[in-house]
Design a protein around this nucleic acid. Structure first.
Length: 763
RNA sequence: GCCAGAGUGGCGGAAUCGGCAGACGCGCCAGAUUCAAAAUCUGGUGAGCAUCACGCUCGUGAGGGUUCGAGUCCCUCCUCUGGCACCA
């Protein structure tokens, strides 16, 4: 087990310091699922009848115990301690250890028939509680996850026959077993507040349990639920349902003994939001957040509750019974004690095996035999003359991906993970440029080590959370300098392709599908088309080999970047590839004479306009590349290149810059052009620095701005680039078309945004 | 059901802060070149109306709102994609 839960809070708080997409952060926060609330102890009444007063007194003097002191105490976790007065029953998960202990021999007198078990396969007749509970627990354990999901609609469960005491009002409440409570979360037991929890409400309706309200909802909710529920009833005719006080009275008196307003309103839908506490002596009238604190504090003083935090996140079972995984460097001696292998015995490598399947047996009680158990020789190691048995489980699938990026730092080092100076060089990044500091300092360093991590969103919660946890452990142990592994995360989209299903809904090989008359056919049968992530499961994968051999690697690469934004999924459509292929060819022809192979580059300076265009391109492309906007960067290069087609010879300053900008996108052709340009015959373009835009060339002397009248562009004016609002207004009102448009109209207002536009409001 | 993301021409997509919707590419149409074709080059290409070179109206999934001005901000709804599944 890896105690990732011990890092839960840090895994949440450090998210704020990472440059990650917000949706991924949200998914991680939800996955960790931190919830604040309280643990509360309930005394289960023994069949003989313990005196609860005695227990309350003992608790008052002993205080809150770390674990319940006896088997008749049920500890629950709740995020809503303020609803304790509304707890009308309790539920234990079927796997809860107390279930078998609290069940009495016979049903208590007056047990409603509905409580004696509601679930498929319930034993017939009036079965005693123990047999009924056993039957329910066995059935719950036999249910697969899929079955549990299918049955989410109907709540099932059984009354255990036992009661507990509600610590706030000492009311006796029944204890049920139901599989809607999970053993794996919280304490595996809950207090049920049907008026203010959706699931408890469903269960209460099913089992005919009381649903007393203890939180007053806001007026909107009352109007939507209470007023709507009663307005058709004849009894409501005399009531003013628009009056908030009437609605509150209806809601507050629902289900109170003898006060159901003649059954006019009873709660059928839980209100699970915050409101004002009602029918709750110790916290009456308090808003939810204050009520929570008050009641928890009050119970804490009496040793009955304690503030608590719970996580949805589970600890990481770091072991699999599979062959393909990293073997553990652990052996066991004769007494079964685990021993770490000595460094000289490392690395442990997987044995060559013919058969990777786990060993099976007919004996249901036999221990499982993982695949490595078949490697009988490998499984035994002799150390200091004594035989040891190897650990036969392997590490789980995310183990390697948690640290591979660290190994890349110093891959040939066979003594360390990575040399500390190498690790610092790559992983420590100062926030504001400059030299890397000696050690991590949150004030000056980025929290994450890897500058940019590009990966699919499917890793949002597993790989990316485990890797963060692993890195933090290594950081705490002093092996890595930064607290986080990946500073900036970018989720690329999926490449999608058409996939086809036959009449059974089964995917057919996409490459065998033909289109005819707008319909799709595979082997003579019509198939249905859909779009999905390209891959094996949808049988729609296309290898890029053919494109690569037809158009070359540069075109393939460029096309993949040009298809659209990196983070968006997009269909693979080979029809569009010729576009970028033509671009590369046109670029080549602009710089090299096709017939002679001679360079068409001149040392003459570029014209003013061309130079401006170049620097505008450099500026735009730089920004696009920074934002990973490869598609728009390429569009700008195409635009510049298109301007060169009409020239007899391309000025060297333009050619060189264009080729440099192209290099990261289409490296082969850029390298070839670079060598032809003769800019340093020995060097590769890879060592050139990226072109820089001259800011003075980005400013135009004059600009054209639109003039809008009645929200439409009616004319354009040319003004100095730095013209102020007054100058723009003057120029706009003088423009002939504007004057024509304004004839007979009154100008109410003129809005001028310098450098952008003029908007004339007429009335 | 819950969480997240996305809906823009025939297609992929562009639009940095609320300021000219449709950059760039594909496709399509026309022209040049050619004996012809491919390739290449030039021009055009959201829809409708028009006294088809002035111009007008509509238009970013639907409906409302804020604003001088909305693809962009707010509310309601629809569709699609991905993730989660009774988490007390």
């Amino acid at each position: 087990m890896m105690r990732i839960t011990a890092y839960a809070d840090r895994l949440i708080s450090d998210l704020d310091l990472l440059d990650w997409p917000e949706p991924i952060k949200i998914m991680q926060r939800n996955w960790i699922g931190r919830s604040e609330g309280a643990q509360v102890d309930f005394l289960a009444l023994a069949a003989g009848g313990d005196d609860p007063r005695e227990w309350f007194r003992r608790r008052e003097s002993s205080g809150w115990p770390a674990a319940p002191e006896s088997e008749s105490v049920i500890r629950v976790f709740t995020t809503r301690p303020d609803t304790l007065y509304g707890a009308t029953y309790m539920v234990l998960a079927p796997e809860h250890p107390l279930v078998s202990r609290i069940v009495p021999d016979a049903w208590p007198e007056g047990t409603p028939a509905a409580w004696k078990g509601q679930f498929p396969g319930r034993p017939e007749g009036d079965v005693p509680p123990r047999a009924m509970v056993d039957a329910y627990v066995r059935r719950a354990q036999a249910k697969s996850d899929v079955e549990r999901q299918v049955e989410t609609k109907e709540k099932t469960g059984v009354f255990t026959g036992a009661f507990a005491v509600n610590p706030v009002d000492e009311e006796r409440i029944p204890i049920f077993v139901a599989d809607y409570v999970l053993m794996g979360y919280g304490t595996g037991a809950i207090m049920a507040v049907p008026a203010h929890d959706l699931r408890d409400c469903e269960f209460a309706l099913q089992f005919d349990l009381p649903i007393p309200p203890v939180v007053m909802p806001p007026e909107d909710w009352l109007r939507e639920h209470v007023a709507a529920a009663v307005k058709e009833r004849p009894e409501a005719a005399s009531l003013d349902l628009a009056d908030r006080r009437v609605l509150e009275a209806l809601y507050g008196r629902a289900c109170l003994p003898g006060e159901e307003l003649g059954g006019i309103y009873s709660i059928r839908e839980a209100f699970a939001e915050e409101g004002i506490a009602i029918h709750s002596e110790a916290i009456e009238g308090l808003p939810t957040s204050r009520a929570k604190r008050r009641i928890t504090g009050w119970l804490d003083e009496r040793g009955l509750a304690r503030e608590a935090v719970n996580y949805r996140l589970r600890d990481w079972l770091f072991s699999r019974q599979r062959y393909w995984g990293e073997p553990f460097p652990i052996v066991y001696d004769d007494e079964g004690l685990p021993i770490a292998l000595r460094p000289e015995d490392l690395p442990v490598e997987l044995p060559e095996m013919e058969d990777y399947r786990p060993e099976t047996t007919d004996d249901p009680d036999a221990p499982p035999r993982p695949p490595l158990a078949r490697a009988r020789e490998w499984a035994v190691v002799t150390i200091d003359g004594r035989e040891h048995r190897r650990e036969l489980n392997t590490m789980p699938n995310w183990a390697g991906s948690c640290w591979y990026y660290l190994r890349y730092l110093d891959p040939r080092n066979d003594r360390h993970l990575a040399r500390p100076e190498v690790e610092r060089y790559w992983m420590l990044t100062p926030k504001e440029g400059g030299a890397a500091p000696e050690s991590y300092d949150p004030a000056t360093c980025r929290i994450g080590g890897v500058d940019l991590y590009v990966g699919g969103a499917e890793h949002a919660v597993l790989h990316l959370l485990y890797a963060r946890f692993w890195h933090k452990v290594l950081h705490d142990l002093g092996h890595v300098s930064t607290p986080e592994p990946f500073h900036r995360l970018f989720n690329q989209g999926y490449v999608q392709a058409a996939a086809y299903t036959d009449e059974r809904g089964v995917y057919v090989e996409a490459s065998e599908v033909e289109e005819k008359d707008g319909k799709y056919w595979s082997r003579g049968k019509e198939v249905r088309r859909e779009f999905g992530k390209m891959g094996k499961s949808l049988k729609n994968a296309v290898t890029p080999d053919e494109i690569c051999s037809t158009y070359g690697a540069d075109t393939l690469r460029l096309y993949e970047m040009y298809m659209g934004p990196l983070d968006v999924s997009k269909p693979w459509n080979t029809r569009d590839i010729v576009g970028v292929f033509r671009f590369l060819q046109r670029l080549w022809r602009n710089l090299v004479d096709e017939d002679t192979g001679a360079l068409k580059v001149t040392d003459e300076p570029a014209s003013d306009d061309l130079r401006r265009a170049l620097h505008k391109t450099i500026d735009g492309v730089r920004r696009d590349m920074e934002a990973l906007g490869f598609n728009t960067a390429i569009a700008k290069l195409i635009e510049l290149n298109n301007q060169l087609t009409s020239l007899d010879a391309v000025p060297r300053e333009v050619a060189a810059a264009l080729v440099k900008m192209l290099a990261p996108l289409a490296p082969h052709i850029a390298e070839e052009l670079w060598s032809r340009l003769g800019e340093g015959a020995e060097a590769t373009i890879a060592y050139e620095s990226y072109p820089e835009a001259d800011p003075s060339l980005l400013l135009e002397d004059s600009i054209e701005v639109p003039v809008m009248i009645k929200g439409k562009v009616r004319a354009r004016i040319r003004v100095a680039a730095d013209a102020d609002a007054a100058a723009m207004e003057r120029a706009a009102l003088e423009q002939p078309r504007v004057r024509q448009q304004l004839e007979g109209a009154t100008v109410r207002k003129v809005i001028c945004v310098p450098g952008k536009m003029v908007n004339i409001v007429v009335g």
